[in-house]
């Protein structure tokens, strides 16, 4: 249990229907809060709580301070910005827009490939696998989350790229009339499809861990009622588990999306990109670049002002992933089973 929650990091925030938070504030005040040790300890702990807010604010503030020179600069006349990694863009927004597109596009590819599999795994572990094995199998999937992203990146280079090549050639040859697969097919495999596959693998453990928790929290009586009516296992899942877990699944997938948006190394190592709007899956050199990979590739060679432009793109990434995470949490808080129980206790127990 401890291993699960720690390795998924965020699962507890999403899992609805957990035991209600133990209400620390209502605990007996122990008479004297006035002793010096008490006051110091209270100060320390609430101080670090406030520090966390300060850090998050600091992230936003310092990024804005460093990014402003590049955002406000005139990119056409500025000599520092008209060369190197930032060359050829009229202003900051023209630079960040294709990068933003590439970031979202690669994450969406990963999501389409990974999310169904992840939900399937969660279902397998929670409702299909033999009860005794379930824990061990869950741990196996959690191990995926422990593998450092750089290792997945290297693995993508030498395993996934050649592995996908035949498929990419096939798609290009026979389905090339679909814009997605058109263009000159890659010879090395450095395509955004390969990047998306690796991202999907990295997303799996996050989505699986959260959905598994939620599937397991489906009220036992709902499941048994469905089975008692003669439902097959799948019908039971469809009738009692999915409706209960729907919002949790949505937010788990959004959290997975957030992870994929910010993932750097897999994309930076695998795809061979250029900064443009492109949806082509199987070409190389004309893939859309992502924000994070672009920063990782160009940061060491960039000059001061170019770095500030890169930091500006990082700020945009921060905003987008903040938005996605915000949405995920809001969905759980608004529509999660926990929320429903809080609002209509009578209906639930009836």
């Amino acid at each position: 249990m401890s291993v699960d929650t720690a390795s998924t990091g965020s699962s507890s925030g999403v899992g609805p229907g957990r035991p209600a938070p133990r209400e620390g504030g209502r605990s007996p005040r122990a008479g004297r809060v006035s002793s010096t040790g008490d006051r110091i300890f209270l100060g320390l702990s609430s101080g670090s709580a406030i520090l966390i807010m300060a850090i998050l604010a600091g992230v936003a503030i310092f990024l804005i301070i460093k990014a402003l020179p590049a955002i406000t600069a005139n990119w056409q006349t500025n000599s520092a910005l008209s060369e190197g990694p930032t060359a050829g863009f009229p202003n900051f927004w023209a630079y960040v827009a294709p990068l933003l597109w590439g970031t979202i596009w690669s994450a969406v590819i990963a999501l389409i490939l990974g999310a169904p599999v992840a939900v399937g795994i969660a279902l397998f572990i929670s409702h299909y696998a033999p009860r005794r094995l379930a824990g061990a199998l869950g741990y196996l999937v959690d191990l995926l989350a422990a593998v450092p992203s750089i290792v997945f990146g290297l693995w993508g280079i030498i395993v996934i790229r050649p592995f996908l090549l035949p498929l990419e050639r096939f798609l290009n040859e026979y389905l090339g009339w679909i814009p997605l697969f058109s263009g000159e097919v890659s010879t090395t495999g450095s395509t955004i499809l390969a990047g998306g596959v690796v991202l999907a693998v990295m997303m799996l453990p996050i989505i699986t861990a959260i959905t598994r928790e939620i599937f397991l929290q489906t009220p036992r009586l709902h499941e048994e009622a469905a089975l008692a009516l003669g439902a097959t296992r799948w019908e039971m899942v469809r009738l009692s588990v999915f409706p209960y877990a729907r919002s949790g699944m949505v937010s788990a997938i959004l959290l997975g999306l957030g992870r994929a948006l910010g993932e750097t190394m897999a994309i930076a190592l695998i795809i061979s990109p250029s900064i443009l709007f492109s949806a082509a899956l199987v070409t190389e050199g004309r893939n859309s670049q992502t924000i994070a990979a672009n920063i990782a590739l160009n940061f060491p060679i960039a000059t001061d002002l170019q770095r500030s432009a890169l930091i500006g793109t990082g700020l945009m990434l921060f905003v987008v992933s903040f938005g996605v995470n915000f949405l995920a949490r809001a969905i759980v808080a608004r529509t999660g089973p926990g929320a429903a129980r809080r609002q209509r206790p009578a209906k639930r127990t009836a």
Partner: peptide, 27 residues
């Protein structure tokens, strides 16, 4: 241990910690 369940600071911090887990590492 300390924060009241409905205290705004507690809710804000809980929320921000959730959001912080989603910060892209490169940021």
């Amino acid at each position: 241990e300390y924060a009241l369940v409905r205290s705004p600071l507690r809710r804000a911090v809980t929320f921000l910690v959730d959001v912080m887990t989603g910060i892209p590492s490169i940021v």
